[in-house]
Simulated scan of single mutants.
Amino acid sequence: MDRNDSFREFVAGHQQALMRTAHLLTGDAHQAEDLLQSALLKVLRRWSRLSCVEHPEAYARKALVNQYISWRRLRRTGAELSSAAPPERPYSSEDATIVRVVMRQALMRLPPRQRAVIVLRYYEDRTERETAELLSCSVGTVKSQAHYALARLRELAPELAPRLAELETDVREGQR
């Protein structure tokens, strides 16, 4: 099996999981596709060294998160609009679909690093140590970023407070 075949096999096996992460980070299917493509290009450049590694998907995921953070730095041109009052929430129902939509909208308003911590810790159910390794930071930074992100999510979407309180308790107690 040559280099390209092994890379194609890797992509076929991990593309859906990486795409899900990219979509959670960007909040947009088209941007997620672009992000994943950029990250996979970086992985391909190093594939000859990575194919021998036990977990090349960890490198791919780290490349994905780093690429996303890099894009966010480049795109800081005031795309987010500030307002004195938060937008009204048309639904107060606990319907799971509405909760997911509200959570995604609030998640998109977090800074890139906080969003990455929330996605890795709670959507992908990674440990603090794994999250720290993927983001190239300390476990303490992951804990503080998770704390600040959960507090900000509570401000952005007060109707999610009970669900976020559970996550914050887990963060304080180091259970997740």
Score class of each variant (00 low, 15 high):
Leu64Ala: 01
Ala132Pro: 05
Ala96Gly: 09
Ser136Pro: 00
Pro87Ser: 06
Leu150Arg: 05
Ala116Ser: 15
Arg73Met: 10
Tyr59Trp: 12
Leu134Ala: 08
Pro56Arg: 04
Val53Asn: 07
Asp125Lys: 14
Arg46Asp: 08
Glu133Asp: 14
Val102His: 07
Ser51Arg: 14
Gln67Gly: 01
Ile69Tyr: 03
Thr141Cys: 04
Leu134Asn: 01
Thr97Ser: 13
Cys137Gly: 09
Ser70Cys: 08
His147Tyr: 11
Arg100Met: 04
Ala149Met: 05
Ser38Arg: 12
Val119Cys: 09
Glu94Tyr: 11
Asp95Ser: 11
Leu64Trp: 03
Arg113Glu: 15
Pro87Glu: 09
Ala149Trp: 01
Arg75Gln: 15
Tyr68Leu: 06
Ser136Phe: 12
Leu135Gly: 05
Ala85Val: 13
Arg121Asp: 00
Ser48Leu: 07
Ser51Phe: 01
Ala106His: 02
Leu41Gln: 10
Thr131Val: 08
Trp71Ile: 00
Ser51Gln: 14
Val142Asp: 02
Met108Gly: 13
Lys62Val: 01
Ser70Phe: 11
Leu81Tyr: 10
Arg126Asp: 03
Arg61Thr: 08
Arg89Asp: 15
Leu107Thr: 04
Gln114Arg: 15
Tyr68Ala: 02
Pro87Leu: 13
Ala132Trp: 04
Trp47Gly: 01
Arg76Leu: 12
Leu120Pro: 00
Arg61Gly: 01
Val102Glu: 14
Ala39Leu: 01
Val101His: 10
Asn66Glu: 15
Tyr123Ile: 09
Trp71Asn: 05
Ala146Phe: 07
Arg115Ser: 06
Asp95Tyr: 11
His55Asp: 14
Ser92Thr: 14
Leu134Pro: 00
Val99Ile: 15
Leu64Val: 02
Arg121Leu: 15
Leu74Met: 13
Leu120Ala: 03
Ser144Ile: 12
Trp47Met: 02
Pro111Met: 09
Tyr122Asn: 06
Ala146Val: 10
Gly78Thr: 08
Gly78Leu: 07
Ser138Asn: 05
Thr127Gly: 07
His55Trp: 10
Ser144Cys: 08
Glu88Met: 13
Pro112His: 05
Leu81Ser: 09
Ser38Pro: 00
Pro90Val: 10
Ala63His: 03
Lys62Arg: 15
Ala132Gln: 06
Thr141Glu: 08
Glu133Leu: 13
Trp47Asp: 01
Arg100Asn: 08
Arg121Phe: 02
Leu120Asp: 00
Val117Phe: 04
Leu134Thr: 07
Gly78His: 09
Ser92Ile: 12
Leu150Asn: 02
Gln37Val: 07
Ser93Cys: 13
Pro56Ser: 06
Ala149Pro: 06
Thr77Gln: 12
Arg129Pro: 00
Arg115Ile: 04
Glu80Ser: 11
Leu134His: 03
Arg109Phe: 03
Pro86Ser: 04
Tyr59Gln: 06
Leu36Gly: 00
Ala79Ile: 12
Asp95Glu: 15
Ser83Ala: 14
Arg75His: 12
Arg115Ala: 10
Trp47Asn: 01
Tyr122Leu: 09
Arg152Gly: 02
Arg46Ala: 06
Asp125Tyr: 12
Val117Tyr: 01
Ala106Tyr: 04
Arg45Lys: 13
Met108Ser: 15
Arg113Gln: 15
Val101Ala: 11
Ile118Asp: 01
Val43Arg: 00
Ser51Val: 09
Tyr123Met: 11
Glu124Pro: 01
Leu36Cys: 00
Arg113Thr: 14
Glu133Cys: 09
Glu94Cys: 10
Ala132His: 06
Arg113Trp: 10
Val139Leu: 05
Val43Ile: 11
Leu50Val: 01
Asn66Ala: 14
Val53Gly: 03
